[in-house]
Design a protein around this nucleic acid. Sequence first.
DNA 1: ACGTGTGTTGACGTTGACGTAAGGGTCACT
DNA 2: AGTGACCCTTACGTCAACGTCAACACACGT
Lengths: 146, 146
Amino acid sequence: MSELMNEEQARRYTITQLCREFDVTPRTLRFYEQKDLLHPAREGMNRIFSYRDRARLSLILRGKKVGFSLDDIKEMLDLYNLKDGQVTQLQVARSKGLAQLEHLKDQKLALDEAITDLERAIEIVEGMLTERGIDTEAEFAQAESA
Amino acid sequence: MSELMNEEQARRYTITQLCREFDVTPRTLRFYEQKDLLHPAREGMNRIFSYRDRARLSLILRGKKVGFSLDDIKEMLDLYNLKDGQVTQLQVARSKGLAQLEHLKDQKLALDEAITDLERAIEIVEGMLTERGIDTEAEFAQAESA
DNA sequence: ACGTGTGTTGACGTTGACGTAAGGGTCACT
DNA sequence: AGTGACCCTTACGTCAACGTCAACACACGT
């Protein structure tokens, strides 16, 4: 490979480069382009991702990690271009964030409830088993994935 | 015996009765029948759900609540009929329960991480907004500037 | 010239749990 | 006889976020 990395070339990424860096598949990046989340240029047939694309991808994945839908993410990302000092974008992001946060907290409540429910159910089942003279202690978790 | 039979016979449910009681739609019960989770009898064209069906539905919904898939639920429910003192059924239920419990706990860890991530992100956004002289103190939001 | 590796483009499949449409029957009241 | 409530059927649609092909293009090294 060439030793000189001028700035322009440093800010260009091929699809597999980005895939490796962010651990996603090419299909995913093409999907994001199709969804208008990324806008890679073309060189012949091949996609060329810019530094901006890379930054957007990073934001997309972070957004996904906290449970935003791709549509939500697109909405927030699109506001980058409005340039009213980015205030609108920030306000939208904040409001969406607060909503999502509430959503996550609701999920957490439901999840905690599910966990205690399930724990209690398992205890009942184990009680029924020991009643029948079957040992349920110190067994290895039978990792039976069907 | 005859009185008991009468009581048993009295426990017949139409589709909408069960729907109202468990807050599900008719489509759902038909779907469960199609998936072999419920086995209502017919009277003419109409489904007649027995007390057993009602009990199964209750179990189905409880299973769903703790995150079991319908396939898992079916597997466990089907073991009711094997009658080896129900030991097999209990053992399968226990093992599936433990697996699902681990799954839920994993989810909980991810969820907690997502929540703190999102909280931090919101703080950053709010910081950027107050920097721009915009008020972020919403009326019902509990988040105050630190 | 050849294979290998990397890229491209659709188009269809997957998963889970149903929803919806479209059409029609039966029954009790009024 | 009409109205409305309830019931049935089959079949296709939905959502999210991709996965999985198939078929084809291009460059590189040998």
